[in-house]
Design a protein around this nucleic acid. Sequence first.
RNA 1: GCGGCCAUAGUCUAGCCUGGUUAGGAUCGUAGCCUUCCAAGCUACUGAGCCGGGUUCAAAUCCCGGUGGCCGCACCA
Length: 503
Amino acid sequence: MASERDFNEVISGLAKKRGFYWGPSPEIYGGSSGFYDLGPLGKLLKNRLESVIRSSFVRSNFWEVECPTVSPEIVWKASGHLDGFMDPLTQCTKCDQVYRADNLIEEHSNDASLKGLSLDEMTKKIEELGIRCSACKSELGPVQQHNLMLKTKLGLDQDAYMRPETATTTYLLFKRFLTFFRDKLPASVFQIGKAYRNEISPRQGMLRLREFTQVEGQIFILEEDEMNWPQFEDIKDVELPLLAYQVQEKGNEKVSMVKMSEAVKKGYFQKPAYAWCVWLAYEIFRGMGFTNENMRLRQHLLNERAHYAADAWDVEIQTRSFGWVECCGIHDRGNYDLTRHQEFSKERMSVKVNKQPVVPNVLEIAFGVERPLFCLLDNSYAEDEERNWLKFPPPLAPVQVAIFPLMGKPELLTPAQEIFNAVLDSGLVTQFDRGGSIGRRYRRQDEVGTPFCVTVDYDSLEDSTVTVRDRDSMEQVRIKREELVETLHKLVKGTILFASLAK
RNA sequence: GCGGCCAUAGUCUAGCCUGGUUAGGAUCGUAGCCUUCCAAGCUACUGAGCCGGGUUCAAAUCCCGGUGGCCGCACCA
């Protein structure tokens, strides 16, 4: 198998060639890194992932909302992103090398008390400690901030920002949710939408984008309900591939399959409701085609956690291009966000518990769609001596069925066209292909992961059957014409397996 | 952002050092012929020197700047 870097080139080459994604966008003007276009197949695949995500959330009683992607500055002051989302940077006055000021100070002082200095204080500290550019030994300039949010203006002069996450915009609706949910907590909502991060220098293609689609599910919940979460009963015997931080601290990277009830007992999870969120994230990723073989749940080490996070686990996916890739965060955000918005907006963000106002906590599942999209491509790629193909689970495949006449003769073309129209009308994404040899057409479909191909041959004219060919085994069975549409639907949904037809 | 390397059809690539004809090949694609199930063959065709500037009679080729990619550093809520 190709090395890691080469493998990424295989995947992105295939993605470009067959229309999964293109970029950096806008290509004809040279492109800006961190931006990609989805081609027809990529968009289909993304839609499938999103619909898996949607139905998982809806089945778990979450309600979908959609908020604007631009919000005025006050929102991001309140959320902490205007301060916390900034990197304090200092630049060499001579060679323009850029350093992260807080890291620099920490390295040179070994003094943990120096966290949280202001910009001016950091500038002074660098001078005091005599820190110079490690490349050319020249003086460093004043500490400035690089904000990871993209700034814009509303009207003539109101500062505003593109949202760096959808979560905050969801929290702003809390009062409305209380009415909608008739004052009952826990209340669960989710949002799928664009978010923007002005990364200094994004690399690794689809894995670090400046504009990407975020999925964020939120549960507004009171503390006692976090401890008493009935749905946990349903999953207590489910085993998840876990890597807790206690295990990692012992220098161990070994994932173990742990029953959820066991994980709570061991103290990996403090709260059953939070543990359930980790399970839900896992379930969503299983729906997106990942398995215990290529997925793990890793708990953040204490120093990895974000400004709002009381506990944090990630879903990580193993790829052949980049090793383990962090794809989803499950956060216990406490009541940090609602408290802050209450403070800044002067609006009540609490509910009454025993006549006392209580600001509820938030549990969050957050991920970008593009990462699992890439990981799925990466994990689905297969090749042997004669062909390469994408072994998408049939329900996720962008193109679901392809229809061919065995040869481009009118007597086969016409019935093949009719079948194509019927299958297309039935709601499957279907392609018709009459070009080149039959083998070549199978290979084309293999390369984009189409799970089933239907071929109309001369026998079809006699006995009204067609052959259905399976992508992974390359085997084929004859199916009666009148059963074709229904059979294809079952195959694509995965309610029957091709192997069960093959006898 | 910094440094090193790099940029030619959809994809892979030759030519660049040593400036000079219609920028060559492979593959993919398209149309047709042939072909009764896994990239066969034949014929024809489409399609390219990242962008901008400079040097020169002449630039894919030399020089400068920008953009993008890879690697290292830094960054990645």
